[in-house]
Amino acid sequence: MTNAVEFENIDVIFGNRQAESLRLLDQGRTREQIADATNNVLGVANVSIDVPEGEICVLMGLSGSGKSSLLRCVNGLNSVSRGSLRVRAGNDMIDVTTCDSTTLRNLRRKNVAMVFQQFGLFPWRTVEDNVGFGLELDGMGPAERRDVVREKLALVGLDQWAHKYAHELSGGMQQRVGLARAFATDAPILLMDEPFSALDPLIRNRLQDELLNLQEKLNKTILFVSHDLDEAMKLGNSIAIMEGGYVVQHGTPEDIALRPANGYVADFVAHMNPVNILRGRAIMHRVTKDQRNSSGIIAIEDEGMRITVDNGTVQAAHNAEIGDLKLIAYDGTLSADLDGTDNSVVFVAQDDVLLKDLIDMRSITQNPVILTREGKISGTLGRKEFFDSLT
């Protein structure tokens, strides 16, 4: 997998006595001790994480944990005191800690775009002119710029608002203008610094859904800062939890929910709703080859179901009391004619399906759900796995 951003041993100190502060950091001194000794502030300490292309990495933690300080290093808004920070520009990786000003400026113009918490719209410019501002600075002509802007506004559902001004839009609409402005440059990397935190919960949830839908179409690399675990779990392919400038755990949402690295992370996930986070692959009973008999049949004894498998592909399912079961491939929605209980069906779903969707399937049939990866059976979810996941 190709990385879009690589943080390697990144330290960020705010203040003039950099060398002294770094020496104290190497001695294991805390942020408070460094501040007392030097009047400098430790923003980020010894961070090393990779962000693959096309993934959303959420940087999260409490206020002052260092997440925004780290994010702003990617486009050079914050200076790195020590370490290497490499950002992809086409086939090259540019180290923003050592590159010259011209290279950094080109990186900001073509490769990295930013969406701010407070929208940052110019009140004297129309929506259309706000979205096209970066293209205008880049020297693009009015006609070409107008075409690009209208395309990006349509992408975020604001093409009918092109001639309005910021004060005529709701908060959620203004944030979508900020998204369109970032998309207009076609930069493959987006930096999003708590972009939804100033919005009402309902609008915020809607924009999270819209961002995920846009990500399916655009496949950007996104570094997203948040202090909300539910938001991080919903959006992130990976999550880096920060405390006191350090990354204390970096992993998938399932890793963090099921295996918190320390008490700080455990406190974050203690009251989390698992149905919106856990996926089938994290809680399923894994199927191995030695569970199959000579005829390729896998027995799920606790619920009386047997699955016939040929070269890893599910061929049939049978229940001792009901007989042959109808296999139904789950595609993200449940058919209206399945509303109610039907014990004669068994669902087959991808093993990255969310627990909330698995619960919907289970509410229709009392049979286990069969989970697959790339068309091959990978596991099953029976009564025991459902109960274990909820406790």
Rank of each mutant, 00 (worst) to 15 (best):
382 G>E: 02
384 K>V: 00
311 N>Q: 15
226 S>F: 05
83 G>R: 10
25 L>F: 06
179 L>D: 04
44 V>F: 04
101 S>I: 15
194 E>S: 07
74 V>H: 03
333 T>P: 00
82 R>M: 12
136 E>M: 14
149 V>S: 06
299 A>Q: 09
46 N>T: 04
259 R>M: 09
77 L>K: 01
382 G>M: 01
12 V>Q: 09
60 M>T: 14
225 V>R: 03
334 L>K: 11
246 Y>G: 00
203 I>Y: 05
334 L>I: 15
354 L>C: 02
109 R>L: 08
92 D>A: 15
54 G>H: 08
333 T>W: 03
132 G>W: 05
288 T>V: 13
29 R>T: 02
22 L>C: 08
22 L>R: 09
112 V>Y: 11
181 R>Q: 03
387 F>V: 04
216 E>C: 01
236 G>L: 10
192 M>I: 11
169 L>H: 08
272 M>Q: 10
170 S>K: 08
67 K>C: 05
314 V>W: 11
343 N>T: 03
152 K>A: 08
23 R>L: 10
204 R>N: 09
299 A>E: 11
373 R>L: 05
297 I>G: 06
235 L>Q: 09
203 I>M: 14
190 L>H: 02
78 N>M: 10
196 F>I: 09
198 A>V: 08
219 N>E: 07
289 K>L: 09
45 A>F: 00
197 S>W: 04
357 D>L: 07
16 N>A: 15
260 P>H: 11
205 N>H: 10
290 D>K: 07
42 L>V: 13
23 R>G: 09
57 C>I: 12
391 T>N: 06
119 F>S: 07
265 V>W: 02
157 G>V: 13
287 V>H: 05
185 T>F: 01
172 G>F: 09
95 D>M: 14
123 P>K: 08
121 L>D: 02
102 T>W: 07
163 H>T: 12
223 L>R: 09
302 D>R: 14
381 L>T: 01
329 A>K: 08
84 S>T: 14
132 G>C: 10
35 A>C: 08
58 V>Y: 04
230 D>H: 10
